[in-house]
Design a protein around this nucleic acid. Structure first.
Lengths: 336, 336
DNA sequence: ATTGGCACTCGATGTAAAAGAGTGCTAATA
DNA sequence: TATTAGCACTCTTTTACATCGAGTGCCAAT
């Protein structure tokens, strides 16, 4: 569909706009990217490309801007190419290694780092895989009717949830229950042991079984829904970007970050396949950030699925973002 | 120092500015607040008040704005008065009761609620008191060298931390250690049992003691530092306020929210005494938000110190904010 | 098919005048 | 002596208008 030169022009416009943040004129493109052509030629091509939906003018006397279609073209082109690892990541990873123990704080820190070095919003997320084995389940009486249920999955992911259990079940009884449950569950995925545990609880705790309903429900919630645990960082840095001087956009993105649900939708959508994924503008499942792009990289090992991501303006530096995320996730996986 | 009428004028200017967000002119003040005087009289008073440092003009032909001193006067006046409970809080508390179990999620939700209904930034924090008794300490082997240490305090506060312990200490051994420690610690504050636990670990775990160093360190960190666990919510709503149209201020406040350390400083300072505390502009320990005010209310029970707060522009609605926080904290304490 | 030339468009920038809000001062007043 | 009306003055905001310049579209020449 597109001639060789048209492709060159589109990519040049995208590149130029990502670099400089201003509409690219025919003159600039001719001089910086297609030396063989005159501005007039570029103008003709641009005019055609505008009809085709790749470019548009904010007003008559301005240069051309890329449409989401053009960004898509550009990103697909990048993805074909071989990427170099992002420099500097190793140093940051050393920082992480030095100071952080558990997955939670590693990811929290990683998301902040991502935000800081890119000026976009950093995202990190982790969720258990469907078939992850349970490592152990413990119950700790907090006092009164409340009991803390701690579920540790193989791979080190820890979930804790407060549930209500009758006050007359002592800690010793809880320990016994936990021991029995662990005998059944430990090393197996929830799907395989759910029924067994259920019937164990039914017969063992007959008299108080109705109260255990909630424990089972919560286990289901944690172990079946496989919700992502989300971390974001660096929101403050986007304020410096020219693209977010508009309060409307700013509000949309801050709302997104505060609404766990929407952020989860984005991460979920992006993480369906392994590796890098770029979602441009309207391709995002969340309305309101249709002028933003999301770059994510996902990977699974040891029963967990981890996602690192960056949310930035549509004219974000895709090439660098992708390289950074890939290098970082790879580095993190070497440690954990 | 201030005559009766001067006081009236200052308070009127503050009130007017809080209400309308624009500099108050002599005419307005005379018409809306001091009917007995003419604008010219008010002008004279204002001029004196400006010399005294209570008011200032952004430029010659504008009305007067309150200085932090004036806000202080205004807030002190409010604090003298009896406050009515904030309406609507009971409904929100019902929401919280229905859906949330543990302190963590209650406070997270509360902070979001506070932000949403005021358009300021909501803050919630909780920390153990110095003499809080330990309820129990457990160790859960996560796999490899990592062990999850869970410390439950009387009152329901739960701290967990991943520590490293040699892989050859089995879960059974961990359970034994935990049992012994709990026999010593349960029901007592850390300060009283620290040494006993220390020497127990020394003699019991002689051969691996050096590895337990970290466990003790982490206990100290959690139990002695009594750091606040912080929650913030509603940052997105301040974007709509005219006071935060300025990117500089916005950046300052977002940075504050992302920097746990600074936020902790604010909460700590505000929570030194019981009840309501208002910190205006420069009175805040954190530079950068010198154009903001912080209203907090603190209270201690059951071994915990809880703080609710609002961070808003200096011209925030102090009266409503104070009422809201007081009503809310009181309501939360009835439940927990 | 490409290019140079040129008229045209439209936002950005700058300047000047007018409008409006509010003050400070002075002289009159109670 | 404290208050007030009146008025000149200051400074921002708004509006209008001219200018500039980047960039286009189109046409005729190559």
């Amino acid at each position: 569909m597109l001639t060789e030169r048209q492709l060159e022009v589109v990519l040049a416009v995208v590149y130029e706009y990502i670099e400089c943040g201003e509409p690219a004129g025919s003159r600039t493109i001719a001089k910086k990217y297609l030396r063989g052509c005159s501005p007039a030629t570029i103008r003709n091509e641009m005019s055609d490309l505008e009809e085709m939906g790749y470019l548009y003018q904010p007003h008559t006397s301005a240069g051309r801007l890329p449409t989401p279609m053009a960004y898509r073209l550009y990103v697909d082109a990048i993805m074909q190419r071989r990427r170099n690892p992002h420099p500097g990541v190793n140093g940051w990873l050393d920082d992480i290694r030095d100071q952080r123990r558990d997955m939670e704080s590693v990811l929290a820190y990683a998301s902040q780092l991502l935000g800081k070095v890119t000026s976009y919003v950093g995202v990190a997320a982790i969720a258990p895989l469907e078939d992850v084995a349970i490592h152990r389940i413990d119950f700790l009486r907090l006092g009164g009717e409340t009991v803390l249920m701690v579920i540790v999955l193989n791979g080190g992911l820890v979930h804790s949830r407060t549930i209500l259990l009758p006050a007359d079940i002592s800690q010793d009884m809880l320990d016994n229950i936990s021991r029995s449950i662990n005998t059944i569950a430990s090393g197996n995925p929830w799907g395989q042991v759910r029924e067994v545990i259920y019937s164990y609880l039914v017969q063992e705790l007959e008299q108080i079984f109705h109260s255990c309903r909630e424990a089972i429900d919560q286990m289901d919630l944690i172990l079946s829904s496989r919700k992502y645990r989300l971390f974001t960082g660096g929101a403050r840095y986007i304020l410096a970007l020219p693209d977010f001087q508009d309060m409307g956009k700013l509000k949309a993105i801050l709302s997104l970050l505060e609404e766990e649900k929407n952020l989860a939708a984005i991460v979920e959508k992006c993480s369906q396949k392994e590796g890098v994924r770029v979602t441009i503008g309207d391709e995002n499942p969340v309305p309101g950030i249709s002028s933003c792009s999301v770059v994510t990289v996902a990977s699974s090992t040891k029963g967990q699925r981890a996602v690192l991501g960056l949310i930035g303006p549509m004219r974000m530096d895709y090439e660098r973002s992708i390289a950074l995320l890939e290098t970082m996730l790879k580095g993190l996986y070497e440690d954990f």
